[in-house]
Computed example of a mutant assay.
Amino acid sequence: MSTEWKLFADLAEHAGDKHVTVDAAAGDTVGDALEDLLDDRPALEERVLDDDGELRSQINVLRNGTNVLVEAKGLETELEGDDELALFPPVSGG
């Protein structure tokens, strides 16, 4: 089974596509799926992770429309079948 990431704004440009399928499956975590996404995409990794390899605070990671970073488990949130993952850059209002 695989999971699809939807990437928005400049993150899609860094990844080379707006939709990227990774090998993460039910039982894996959102963090596992993120690792798979970043594995062969150094430009995206540099944009999403800081120098310590931690997720930059402004990056939003959504699972089925909910920001996992505000949930109790964060990147440790387990995937279920047919989850939709999305990665958003910082959003600024105007």
Rank of each mutant, 00 (worst) to 15 (best):
L75A: 07
E45H: 06
P42H: 11
D10T: 11
D39T: 14
R47K: 13
H14S: 07
E46L: 10
L75M: 12
D82L: 07
E13G: 05
F88K: 07
L55D: 09
D28N: 15
L38W: 00
D52I: 00
V70S: 11
H19V: 14
D39N: 12
D23F: 02
V91T: 13
V70P: 02
V70M: 09
L85I: 04
L38T: 00
R41W: 12
G16V: 10
V68F: 05
A12Q: 01
L49Y: 01
D82T: 02
L85Q: 06
V68W: 07
A43I: 00
L38D: 05
V91K: 05
I59W: 04
N60I: 15
D83Y: 07
G53R: 11
G53C: 03
H19M: 07
K73D: 15
R56W: 03
N67I: 03
T77E: 14
G94L: 05
A86C: 05
E80W: 00
R47F: 01
N64Y: 11
T29H: 02
D82A: 12
A9E: 09
V91F: 09
E84V: 13
T66N: 13
G81S: 14
V30M: 13
E13P: 00
V30F: 09
A9V: 00
V70Y: 07
F88W: 09
W5Y: 10
E45L: 01
V22W: 02
A9Y: 08
Q58R: 08
G93V: 10
D36A: 15
L11N: 10
H19I: 11
R56E: 13
D10S: 12
E4H: 00
F8C: 09
L62N: 05
E45R: 15
F8L: 07
T77D: 06
P89W: 06
L87S: 01
N67D: 15
H14V: 00
V30D: 10
W5S: 06
D32Y: 02
A72M: 05
K6V: 06
G31Y: 09
I59N: 03
D28V: 03
D52S: 14
L62A: 12
D36P: 00
P42L: 04
A86V: 06
A86Q: 11
A25D: 12
L79K: 06
G27T: 08
E54D: 14
V20Q: 01
E35V: 04
E78D: 11
D40H: 13
G65D: 08
R41H: 12
L44T: 08
A26H: 08
L75C: 04
E45T: 15
E84C: 00
E71T: 15
R41L: 08
